[in-house]
């Protein structure tokens, strides 16, 4: 598999390590009322779709950036690559924290 890195261009997937579902970016609020339940679901439960999957890859043998890769788990076709930093910045909770 080739991952088209937004900064470095196409890189072999073996340069990366894989973490999992990109929802891991959306860490629950530890002060929330249902924090225990929310962290259980966040840490242990997965949608695990057959088809499009947004997932976190770390460019360990490269520039050590985190990427959000959109990939089809039925065909291994990669349909989109974003910097995880940008995805997190576009996330509402992140903006809320920054204000």
């Amino acid at each position: 598999m080739l991952i088209n890195h937004p900064l470095l261009g196409p890189r072999d997937a073996s340069e990366f390590t894989y973490l999992g579902d990109a929802n891991l970016l959306n860490r629950p609020d530890w002060q929330g009322e249902n924090a225990v339940e929310a962290f259980h679901d966040y840490l242990y439960l997965r949608d695990n779709p057959a088809g499009l999957h947004r997932e976190l890859w770390f460019h360990e043998q490269g520039d050590r950036s985190w990427l959000v890769v959109t990939r089809n788990t039925l065909t291994h076709e990669i349909l989109g690559v974003e910097m995880a930093r940008d995805v997190a910045r576009n996330n509402k909770r992140f903006e809320g924290d920054a204000q």
Partner: peptide, 18 residues
């Protein structure tokens, strides 16, 4: 192998990745 797909039909999310 397909547990998440089948149990997903019953509305369950599992502590499993394929």
């Amino acid at each position: 192998g397909s547990s998440s797909r089948v149990m997903g039909l019953a509305g369950m999310r599992l502590p499993i990745e394929s």
